[in-house]
């Protein structure tokens, strides 16, 4: 499928580059609909990769790239089905989202996340599977999961540790603070910082540069320098599932859902 327009994402090929667009209000929260559509995307990827050099992931939502997992859906579904079925459902969701993200991580294409605004939790984890992160200067990165009694569950810790020093990973994880684009660039997380509203344009320029290189060489270089931390990713799923059964999580989720604030887990 060369192009697709769903309820949460869309993709098309533009100048030899796949453009994957996140477009689900309010801020591309990743729930079951987004997951199903991402699975359609990764199923189509084998075919798309034969005629493209790069993949750009970006958001059409003004508030940001992606605010992470759909915690409202998680809370209400858990309440509906009960604790045991909820735990099974969470594990199934994690296994599936990991398959999607591992597939994008392993793509032979050069992959670029063009981000702006809120890039939190699962959204940050989606950006981390990409080879390059190009950030609008108003972008912010954060792992707020500890506020909910959880750890990032979409591969965030192993992938962040793959890219950065352990100290900054601990800082982000244990304080839950957000980093602006300038700081993210300074620590090596973001490769380029752009003016407001220019991340996609700059990502497209990077994608056109990538097209100048031999595909096989680019893929070999990527494979050499960007190993996928499968063992740690597996451990992260187990840790998340263990923590999910703790009472603190339900209390954190309830507080989140009952809040009318735009970003309930933030100050």
């Amino acid at each position: 499928m060369k192009e697709f327009k769903g309820d949460a994402i869309a993709w098309e090929i533009v100048d030899g580059c796949i453009e994957l667009v996140l477009d689900r209000p309010p801020c591309n929260e990743i729930g079951s609909i987004t997951l199903q559509e991402l699975e359609r995307f990764t199923s189509a990827l084998d075919s798309l990769e034969t005629e493209t050099h790069a993949l750009i992931v970006y958001s059409r939502q003004p508030s940001g790239f992606c605010a992470g997992a759909d915690l409202r859906e998680l809370y209400y579904r858990s309440k509906e089905v009960g604790a045991e079925a909820a735990a099974t459902g969470v594990r199934d969701f994690l296994e599936r989202i990991h398959c999607v993200l591992n597939r994008i991580d392993a793509s032979p294409l050069t992959t670029i996340a063009a981000v702006h605004g809120v890039t939190f939790g699962g959204g940050f984890e989606l950006a981390l599977v990409c080879d390059l992160i190009i950030a609008d200067k108003m972008a912010r990165f954060c792992f707020p999961e500890l506020r909910l009694g959880l750890v990032p569950g979409f591969g965030g810790i192993p992938r962040l540790r793959r890219d950065l020093g352990n100290a900054i990973v601990r800082d982000l994880l244990l304080t839950g603070r957000s980093l602006n684009a300038a700081k993210a660039n300074a620590v090596g997380l973001v490769s380029q910082v752009t003016a407001e509203g220019q991340a996609l344009k700059v990502a497209r320029l990077a994608a056109s540069q990538v097209q100048k290189f031999d595909r096989t060489t680019s893929a070999a270089a990527k494979d050499f320098i960007k190993p996928i931390p499968y063992t740690e990713l597996r451990r992260e799923i187990e840790l998340f599932c263990r923590l999910f059964s703790e009472p603190a999580v339900n209390a954190g989720l309830r507080k989140f859902v009952e809040s009318t604030d735009a970003l309930p887990y933030l100050p």
């Binding site: 508030s63 605004g117 809120v118 108003m138 912010r140 604030d261 735009a262 970003l263 309930p264 100050p267």
Partner: peptide, 8 residues
């Protein structure tokens, strides 16, 4: 403003 705009 809300918390999202406060973050901005």
């Amino acid at each position: 403003i809300d918390s999202l705009q406060a973050l901005e």
